[in-house]
C-alpha cells in the first residue's frame, strides 16, 4: 500500500521533523525569556505524526488542527517565518498578528487553522471534505485531535456525519496520554480511541506515533480509501509530548523522570535517523547538513519575528464586517 519512499522523500521527512522540533524547542526558550505573549502548546515529540500524514497531502487537501498546531502547520507547508512572527504577535505574521499560536491558518496551503476549542476542527473538516467531494478531484480533509478531543460531542457528531455522507475524511487522534493534566487512562472510556471507529462505521487503526514509517503507511491506506470514495477512517497515533500542556505547566501530574526518559527512548527523530542511516543509505553528514539548514532557518525566523513591526492601531478594526 505504501509507495516506496525515495531518498529525497526521506530527506524531506527528516527536514520537516527537524524543523518542527527546532521550532518548538526555540519557542520554548524564547517563551521562557518573555519574548512571546499569551500561551503556547508545543508539539515536540510528536513530529512523526504530522510529518507522516503531511507527506500524503496535496495542496488542495485540507487540514484542521488543534491548540497544539505548530507541527501540523509546518507539515502542511505553512511558511515558518510567518508562523514565528504570528506567535510573536507581529504584523508580518501568517494572520497579521490577529490569531496567535492557537489560530495559525493559511487557507492557501489548505491549513484551516489551529483551533482554540478542543473538538472544534472535526465538524469543519466534514465541510471541507464535502467541498472536495463535490469538486470530484479526489481531495480529502484530515482532522488532528488529541485524546482529550476524542471525548467531545462535536467529534462524535463529525465522525457520524462523515460516515453518513461518505466523506473523504481522515480523523487522526494523537493520543499523547494527557488531556491537559488528566491521564487518558482516566478520561477515555475505552482502552483505545481506535475502538470508537466501530461505532461510527469506519475502519480504525492503532499506530505507533513515534514511527514515521508506520504513520506514513497507515495514512496511505486511509487516504486511498478517502480519495477513491470509500469514506472516512480513524487512525490513533500513540505518542508522547516532550513539554507540558502549555508552557509554564508544572507537569506534576507526570511521574518524575518521565519526560527525560521519553526524550531518550521514544524520540521519533532519533529513531528515524537511525533507521535511514542504517537501511536507506543516507549518511550522517546528509542529516547534519539538514540540521544546519534548519537551525539557520529557525534563527532567521526568530530574528524576523523579533524585528518585525507590531500591528498598526488601525488593524484593530480591519478584517471584520461590522464596526461600531
Amino acid at each position: 500500500m505504501a509507495q516506496a519512499l525515495s531518498v529525497e522523500d526521506l530527506l524531506d521527512a527528516y527536514r520537516t521533523m527537524k524543523t518542527i522540533r527546532e521550532f518548538e524547542d526555540r519557542v520554548h526558550v524564547e517563551f521562557a525569556k518573555g519574548g512571546i505573549p499569551g500561551f503556547v502548546h508545543l508539539y515536540a515529540g510528536e513530529e512523526a505524526s504530522a510529518t507522516g500524514v503531511g507527506m500524503h497531502l496535496r495542496d488542495d487537501d485540507r487540514l484542521a488542527s488543534n491548540h497544539r498546531g505548530h507541527g501540523h502547520c509546518i507539515a502542511k507547508g505553512v511558511e515558518v517565518k510567518g508562523m514565528m512572527a504570528e506567535i510573536y504577535g507581529k504584523r508580518t505574521g501568517t494572520c497579521r498578528g490577529k490569531g496567535g499560536s492557537m489560530h495559525i491558518a493559511d487557507l492557501d496551503t489548505g491549513m484551516m487553522g489551529a483551533n482554540g476549542i478542543v473538538g472544534g476542527g472535526p465538524p469543519l473538516v466534514c465541510g471541507a471534505a464535502l467541498a472536495a467531494k463535490r469538486k470530484g478531484k479526489g481531495g480529502l480533509a484530515v482532522a488532528f485531535c488529541g485524546d482529550g478531543a476524542s471525548n467531545q460531542g462535536t467529534v462524535f457528531e463529525a465522525m457520524n456525519l462523515a460516515t453518513v455522507w461518505k466523506l473523504p475524511v481522515v480523523f487522526v487522534f494523537e493520543n499523547n496520554g494527557y488531556a491537559e493534566a488528566t491521564d487518558s487512562r482516566f478520561s477515555v472510556s475505552c482502552k483505545d480511541i481506535a475502538q470508537r471507529a466501530i461505532g461510527f462505521g469506519m475502519p480504525g487503526r492503532i499506530v505507533d506515533g513515534h514511527d514515521f514509517f508506520a504513520v506514513h503507511e497507515a495514512f496511505a491506506e486511509a487516504a486511498e480509501r478517502a480519495r477513491s470514495g470509500g469514506g472516512p477512517s480513524l487512525i490513533e497515533h500513540k505518542l508522547d509530548r516532550f513539554f507540558g500542556h502549555f508552557e509554564g505547566d508544572n507537569q506534576k501530574y507526570r511521574p518524575a523522570g518521565e519526560v527525560a526518559r521519553l526524550r531518550e527512548e521514544t524520540c521519533c527523530i532519533k529513531r528515524f535517523a537511525k533507521k535511514v542511516t542504517g537501511e536507506h543509505g543516507i549518511t550522517a553528514q546528509q542529516l547534519a547538513a539538514i540540521d544546519d539548514e534548519v537551525a539557520k532557518l529557525i534563527d532567521e525566523a526568530v530574528a524576523f519575528a523579533e524585528t518585525s513591526p507590531e500591528p498598526e492601531a488601525s488593524d484593530l478594526l480591519t478584517d471584520v464586517y461590522i464596526k461600531y
Binding site: M112, P123, C126, G127, A131, T154, E157, A158, L161
Partner: peptide
C-alpha cells in the same frame, strides 16, 4: 439538498468548513 443526522454541531460545523473550502452552504 442534503438531509443531516440530528447533530447540529456536526452539520453546522460542516457548513462552516465547507464555506471556508469553496462552497456556499
Amino acid at each position: 439538498i442534503m438531509d443531516t443526522p440530528i447533530s447540529e454541531s456536526g452539520f453546522v460545523g460542516a457548513a462552516v468548513g465547507a464555506a471556508a473550502s469553496g462552497l456556499r452552504p
